[in-house]
Design a protein around this nucleic acid. Sequence first.
DNA 1: TGACTTAGTGTATAAATTACACGTATAGTT
DNA 2: AACTATACGTGTAATTTATACACTAAGTCA
Lengths: 222, 222
Amino acid sequence: MSYTYEYPHPAVTVDVAIFSIRHDALNVLLIKRALAPYQGEWALPGGFVEIDEALEHAAARELKEETGVDAGYLEQLYTFGRPDRDPRERVISVTYFALIPSDRLEIRAASDAEGVGWFPVASLPELAFDHAEILDTAFERLKAKLDYSTIAFQLMPATFTMPELRHVYEVITREEIDKRNFSKKILGLGVIEPTGEEKREGAHRPAKLYRVIDRSKVDVIK
Amino acid sequence: MSYTYEYPHPAVTVDVAIFSIRHDALNVLLIKRALAPYQGEWALPGGFVEIDEALEHAAARELKEETGVDAGYLEQLYTFGRPDRDPRERVISVTYFALIPSDRLEIRAASDAEGVGWFPVASLPELAFDHAEILDTAFERLKAKLDYSTIAFQLMPATFTMPELRHVYEVITREEIDKRNFSKKILGLGVIEPTGEEKREGAHRPAKLYRVIDRSKVDVIK
DNA sequence: TGACTTAGTGTATAAATTACACGTATAGTT
DNA sequence: AACTATACGTGTAATTTATACACTAAGTCA
């Protein structure tokens, strides 16, 4: 079967930069390309948009198909369209930015990828296409949004301690944060509450556990 | 001539929401559609991306072709891709947000539009396609960026007075702003300087004229 | 020259952010 | 059982930033 148009049409893909916290570091999910071009190289999960499919749906679908991961939080990032960004044909990529809590990052078997893996943002392999640029844009978005939104909670498991949350901020901004001021600020947002439980972990005082009050209200501040 | 693909390809367009200040109001540039669908209705300037053309180039080109206007400031806004947003075929629109100073908004004769016009954002006609939604997104972006960037200067002519600049902020935010605090804040940014001239305009004390020191450095604050 | 109109300017208060130190609860060791 | 090591939890003072607020200055016109 083939499809014919009066004027040339670009192909449209979606690519997803999905972040998570693993082993005290910010990680991003990559797939090893099974097919040319860039065969065997690492790339962001993504693929062609179906002709009757919403863009965001395509992003979530490709992510799931290629990596087995369900995005927790998903928002459009930017559209990359340099004419020569794909050697096959003109390809315009609508990219998405995603986050997933660290207790849900199991990778399941995927069909069209030889390999799937989480990579620390600090030590990435060479990436196919312009995916390094996409990832850089996504990382900048993440850092910017830490300041004026509450998306950081999208990286946390169902319950978490204040030191764990603070550590996530520190890992992303690469800056040390004062315990007291941080706690004051976060609690002042009014979006988390103590569970009443504690987390004992090592030879020291246990930390209180918190949970997000309403997961759907985790958005822009004020 | 025709173009054939193994899989269906969407069409890709660019649409531009360009704002300016006219007669003390925020205006947006619209074109009257010469062809179906939505023939005779108003729409954002835009059109199909050439197969070897950068997206931003397409946005600037369509704007110029359809309205005769050269965008001063142009940035990507969002990509709209609802499957049914165009009745002809699947069309994905990469939209752009643009600003132009109020001393450069002459409209010249355009080829594929019966009419071109500036419309106050407060009283818009019905718009074709999903252009009302695009415009709304653009307006929200403009309001947000007033707070944390210096793009407002992109709406100003080569020289302008402090009351004129303040008025631009007031018109966009629809809030009254204190003269003294505003002046303090703007001058504190260090991006404008007095020209030494004054603007006499009516039966009252003349206002000092300012200019942007370096037009290329008008960007995000801090 | 007096009346009217808008421009220009500074200070005091409130709010938000930053800096900073010690007591507490646990696990492991003796 | 007592001691030690380790990370957790908490409040206040100082600084910075944002907000509120009123009078004098310079021009036009009658």
